[in-house]
Amino acid sequence: MGDGILTLFGALRSNPWQVQDAVMGALAIRKALVEYNEELRSKSLPELSFGIGIHQGEVLAGVMESIIR
C-alpha cells in the first residue's frame, strides 16, 4: 500500500452508517489539510497534498497480534 492509511468502517462490528462515516471522515480530513497547508504557507514551507478514495464492498478483516516479547 505504500505511504497510506486504510480505515475500515463496520468491519469488526456492524455499522449501518459506515458509508456516511467514511464520507464524513474524508471531508474532515480535507478540511484539516486546508488548515494545515495555511500553517505551512505562513512558514514558507511546501504544501502537502494527497488523494482520498472510498470503496464500498466486502472485506476480510480480523484482529492480529504478536506474542513476541
Results as ranks from 00 to 15, higher is better:
20 Q>A: 12
31 K>C: 01
11 A>G: 11
10 G>P: 00
21 D>Q: 00
4 G>D: 11
13 R>C: 01
30 R>K: 12
14 S>K: 05
69 R>D: 15
69 R>T: 15
49 S>N: 13
52 I>A: 10
19 V>Q: 09
41 R>L: 08
37 N>M: 04
4 G>W: 04
65 E>F: 01
51 G>Y: 07
16 P>V: 02
58 E>F: 07
68 I>C: 02
19 V>K: 06
20 Q>I: 12
47 E>A: 04
26 A>N: 00
3 D>V: 14
32 A>L: 08
52 I>R: 09
4 G>L: 05
44 S>R: 11
31 K>G: 00
63 V>P: 04
42 S>K: 12
16 P>S: 12
49 S>W: 06
64 M>R: 05
69 R>F: 10
25 G>Q: 08
53 G>D: 15
55 H>E: 13
20 Q>D: 14
56 Q>D: 08
35 E>P: 01
64 M>L: 02
30 R>I: 03
52 I>V: 15
20 Q>E: 14
57 G>P: 08
24 M>H: 10
26 A>T: 07
42 S>E: 07
39 E>T: 14
18 Q>A: 02
8 L>W: 02
4 G>F: 04
14 S>Y: 06
46 P>Y: 01
25 G>N: 11
23 V>H: 04
54 I>R: 06
61 A>F: 01
32 A>C: 04
9 F>V: 00
28 A>Q: 13
8 L>G: 03
34 V>W: 04
52 I>G: 10
50 F>Y: 15
20 Q>P: 05
54 I>P: 10
2 G>Q: 06
36 Y>H: 14
15 N>I: 09
43 K>G: 05
10 G>I: 14
60 L>Q: 13
30 R>F: 03
68 I>V: 15
42 S>Y: 04
36 Y>N: 08
16 P>T: 00
63 V>Q: 01
46 P>A: 08
34 V>R: 09
48 L>K: 11
12 L>S: 03
61 A>I: 02
39 E>S: 12
12 L>Y: 02
61 A>N: 01
36 Y>E: 15
11 A>C: 11
27 L>Y: 09
45 L>Y: 04
7 T>W: 01
3 D>E: 13
19 V>W: 00
17 W>D: 15
56 Q>L: 02
61 A>T: 13
19 V>M: 07
63 V>G: 09
